[in-house]
Design a protein around this nucleic acid. Structure first.
Length: 249
DNA sequence: TTAGGGTTAACT
DNA sequence: AGTTAACCCTAA
């Protein structure tokens, strides 16, 4: 009777990510005690943090559309992601080596970080004064790891959610996440609003529950178009539900 | 305290 | 029905 599922808020997610960025993964108790996060994670236990972090790292599963039969049941992120020849272009220098911990030393298939860790790694590595953006983060990860198409989709999907919710920006104010590249034209801030608006209109237009998953597809396609005139061929199916968006304000 | 396996509530 | 996400259990 008293066991209700307490869903994580974006503030909590942001606090957790920030905590991991600062103390490193596995230091749940430290994060919980850190006065910087204590308040926001007041209703969570160290075990909760561990579980949440694990969930946010979502292993790649489902083998739809892929040629090789996917050993369902025990496929891990390592199945879809493989470390690239370490060219460690880390221009990133931190006092502690928390960043190192995120990308676990010797790159054995087993040590490939999950997407949440990859994103944090990208955030701390990209030292663009203009801030990092969706594409930059994706590029960073794809450059460092050999990402399979299937995982790429999951990754972009998860990243997009974090960006749209503004979670990443809450992690650290120094992380200025933008949805599009520094195009001389494309108004980045407006795009964000636009896409959020896009989500909203779709949510209201259709009132079923399966269209939610479709919204991601649409927003994805939309994002690609706004990002650059030409789409980065991501093939696959993007069943556009015929939504027209005008870039204006 | 943490990591990892296991369970169950809640989605789609 | 299949998949997530929040929670629980326990060895080390």
């Amino acid at each position: 009777m008293g066991n209700q599922k307490l869903k994580w808020t974006t503030e909590e997610e942001a606090a957790l990510m920030a905590g991991v960025a600062k103390h490193g993964p596995g230091k749940w108790k430290n994060i919980l005690v850190d006065s910087e996060f204590a308040h926001k994670l007041a209703s969570r236990s160290n075990v909760d943090l561990k579980d949440k972090w694990r969930n946010m790292g979502a292993n790649y599963e489902q083998g739809s559309g892929d040629n090789a039969m996917t050993p369902k049941g025990k496929a891990t992120a390592a199945s879809a992601v493989r470390p690239r020849t370490q060219t460690s272009s880390s221009a990133f220098v931190s006092k502690d080596n928390v960043n190192e911990k995120l990308s676990q030393g010797p790159q054995t298939a087993k040590c490939v970080p999950k997407y949440n860790a990859m994103i944090l790694e990208a955030l701390s590595s990209i030292k663009d004064r203009n801030g990092s953006d969706f594409g930059a983060i994706m590029r960073f990860i794809e450059k460092k790891y050999e990402v399979q198409q299937s995982f790429r989709r999951l990754l972009s999907s998860k990243l997009r959610r974090l960006v749209l919710q503004g979670t990443l920006e809450k992690v650290q104010k120094r992380y200025k996440i933008r949805l599009a590249a520094t195009g001389t034209k494309t108004p980045t801030q407006k795009q964000k609003v636009l896409i959020q608006r896009h989500y909203k209109s779709l949510a209201e237009a259709v009132k079923e529950s399966e269209r939610v998953s479709r919204m991601a597809e649409d927003a994805d396609a939309l994002l690609m178009h706004l990002k650059e005139g030409k789409t980065t061929k991501d093939n696959t199916n993007s069943k556009s539900s015929g939504v027209t968006v005008v870039v204006a304000d």
